[in-house]
């Protein structure tokens, strides 16, 4: 099986965020970056499918130069090759433009299965995978919690709302978006990190892939959310805060 897994580099979870000067994205100087957490589950799933059924895992990203380190991480964990569609435009790009870049690179090669995470922790479109399927003319299923690729078709467990599930069957090739928690992700070993240096790493510019700069939706201004409730913040030592809180819950909110 030729498995492509789409991974995005995002700012680390605990980053302190403030809008940049143009108000279109968050300031990223001095911030550390990591693989979008949902994509770690997609990568792990790709590696397991390969271990079970053979084939190759190709990690692919669209992003600025720095996002190469996220591809290196995927290689260290066991991906066989990496593809980097490199461009600063992919920092703030919308899901359609990103999917277009990924599609242009994936289309050039045989692919049996394309995996993405469910959602990016920064832009949070929750769309790139589905658009990519449409551009590649692949059937898709989203929010996948289990994949059975032992037959000619793919049988997948799809999460529905409120604790319900359903089984979806798709022909191959197909695209699946993977729900967090589907597996336990592995860590890269020292050996893996060493090996990663020698693995094939293909870089494309958007020009080489013949893609323009389609902008469909963009952030015009970014700001701190407005409070929807008047929160009363309690301050003091832990003991003081605990006493105040219990007091408020008993006599003000009357819920204890």
């Amino acid at each position: 099986m030729n498995i492509f897994v789409c991974v995005k580099q995002v700012m680390a979870r605990d980053s302190v965020l403030r809008p940049n000067e143009t108000g279109t994205w968050a300031v990223d100087d001095g911030v550390s970056f990591e693989m979008n957490e949902p994509d770690t589950f997609a990568l792990e799933e790709a590696l397991r499918l390969k271990e079970r059924h053979g084939g190759e895992v190709v990690a692919i990203t669209a992003g600025p130069a720095r996002s190469a380190s996220t591809l290196r991480e995927a290689l260290a964990k066991g991906a066989d090759r990496a593809i980097h569609v490199e461009g600063n435009r992919y920092v703030e790009s919308d899901a359609y433009a990103t999917a277009q870049a990924l599609a242009a690179a994936i289309r050039r090669e045989p692919h049996d299965l394309v995996l993405t995470g469910l959602q990016s922790d920064d832009a949070g479109f929750g769309q790139t995978g589905v658009i990519l399927a449409e551009l590649l003319e692949l059937p898709h299923a989203t929010i996948i919690m289990e994949i059975d690729a032992s037959g000619g078709q793919l049988r997948c467990k799809r999460e529905l709302e409120a604790g319900w599930f359903q089984t979806i069957t798709l022909p191959r090739p197909a695209l699946l978006t993977i729900q967090s928690g589907i597996n336990k992700v592995r860590y890269a070993t020292l050996m893996g990190i060493k090996r990663a240096r020698r693995k094939p790493f293909r870089r494309y510019s958007p020009d080489e892939l013949g893609i323009g700069e389609p902008v469909h939706q963009r952030v015009r201004s970014l700001y701190q959310p407005r409070q929807s409730k008047q929160t009363e913040f309690l301050e003091g030592s832990s003991q003081e805060v605990a006493a105040k809180l219990l007091n408020k819950l008993r006599f003000e909110a009357r819920v204890l």
């Binding site: 920064d122 952030v219 015009r220 970014l222």
Partner: peptide, 18 residues
């Protein structure tokens, strides 16, 4: 103009479609 949550809800953005 659509208002969306970004960065896991830490920031909000006004989004326009071209």
């Amino acid at each position: 103009v659509f208002v969306r949550q970004l960065f896991q809800g830490k920031l909000h953005g006004d989004v326009v479609v071209d």
